[in-house]
Write a protein that binds this DNA or RNA. Structure first.
Lengths: 225, 225
DNA sequence: TTTCCCTAGATTGCATACAAATTCGTTCTG
DNA sequence: CAGAACGAATTTGTATGCAATCTAGGGAAA
């Protein structure tokens, strides 16, 4: 098995799919910063492919809102105005509220128990001050909330919004005491969901995200313009 | 000015943009039916361009959710499962509720007056049974609700969802008496917004869309599986 | 010195060419 | 006759080439 084609690499698909995944990841994780130029030739060289798949990947990323494109100029990592950023955070609050509300009504027993267990198990990370690991737990926590709503389209909308927001809330848990507060806020949500209180769950989720927005460090306009 | 290039035609952009607009329109209006095959060569011939822009347009439409794409097989007009369709309608209800709620809180005086005027002026269309025209008024009515929320990202989400839903609710106003009921439901929303009652506006909007979902004729799986 | 304009290089947009994959018809076999 | 298997034709995926557009730098004029 010395000579396997690029195509056969685990979980691969077409070249474009790979590029989209790779670049989306780089943008979301911050390896590429908002405003950064993405010229097709460099990308083609970097990924060892021709410009054709690069262009298709950029177009898809553009449609996803992760990169900005204008005719006859290089694509750039999406960089939004402060007003738009605010609208995304607000939308996120609303969407999370919906998910929490629906989760309170629709989660199966197993989902509820799983959520509670995950939440409880993150307590020790708070005490240990394990930023990175708590962040991972946090992501999983919210993911479960989205899935728990049992609505595929809402899941898509919230996931998409979260991805676009990611580059702008990197240092979320750097603020002192934020971890413990986050845990407490999750606790309110979990409690409400466990007892099937949709209204309380929705309100708690809305407030939680709203707080995160405020706590988030906002990178405005990093490069170019 | 005899020899103007394709590019210079009014409101045009790059070839791909034109194709995306044209095809999105065809899909949304039903000129292309869900499930229909979209092979690149035919499209290229039809639009008098090479396959390259066609492929980019298809990829963008795919990202928008208007066409389904799988590696090494033709793209098709998006055709969703009944479960997914249901989830889109539910999402639409939630999103419209948010917009109505925020509109009740945030619309300017002018926006409120404009909405009310538009609504009142559609009354005569109901009496006349003018389906087509009422449908246009209806579209405009909802558009204003979305813009009235003063949140660009939510506007984007709701617009996108509406577009994906369009092919599946074509015959919305064909049902007898639906026009009058729609008007009455709009009336409740408008009244709530005019008096700034966010909760009532949200509930009325949610109920309105939920009814439309039920009233909608669902085309399931038109062509090809 | 500053500003404007022009040209050369660089970069994107689209077309064409070729490779890989799929599909469908035909043939061969049981 | 049914079904598997092979192969040609169709269709998608990627590379390359050329035209159109943009950008940057230098030189001329104010």
């Amino acid at each position: 098995m010395n000579q396997l084609k690029r195509r056969q690499v685990v979980r691969a698909g077409t070249t474009v799919e790979q590029m989209v995944r790779a670049m989306a990841d780089m943008i979301v994780t911050g390896a590429l910063l908002p405003g950064e130029k993405l010229d097709e030739i460099s990308l083609a060289a970097r990924f060892q492919v021709s410009r054709t798949p690069v262009r298709e990947a950029l177009r898809e990323l553009g449609a996803m809102g992760l990169v900005d494109r204008e005719p006859n100029r290089s694509a750039t990592v999406a960089n939004v105005t402060e007003a738009y950023l605010h609208s995304m955070f607000e939308a996120m609050s609303e969407l999370e509220a919906i998910c929490a509300r629906l989760s309170a009504e629709r989660m199966t027993i197993d989902e509820r128990r799983g959520l509670e267990f995950l939440h409880r198990s993150s307590a020790k990370l708070v005490h240990a001050g394990a930023n990175e690991e708590y962040a991972a737990h946090n992501t999983e926590f919210h993911s479960r909330l989205y899935r728990g709503a049992h609505n595929d389209h809402i899941y898509e909308l919230v996931t998409q919004t979260r991805a676009r927001l990611a580059p702008f809330r990197r240092a979320q848990f750097r603020l002192p005491g934020r971890l413990a507060k986050s845990y407490d806020e999750h606790d309110v949500i979990v409690t409400a969901i466990m007892r099937g209180d949709a209204v309380a769950a929705g309100q708690a989720a809305y407030a939680h995200v709203a707080i995160v927005s405020d706590a988030s460090v906002v990178f405005a306009t990093v490069k170019g313009e």
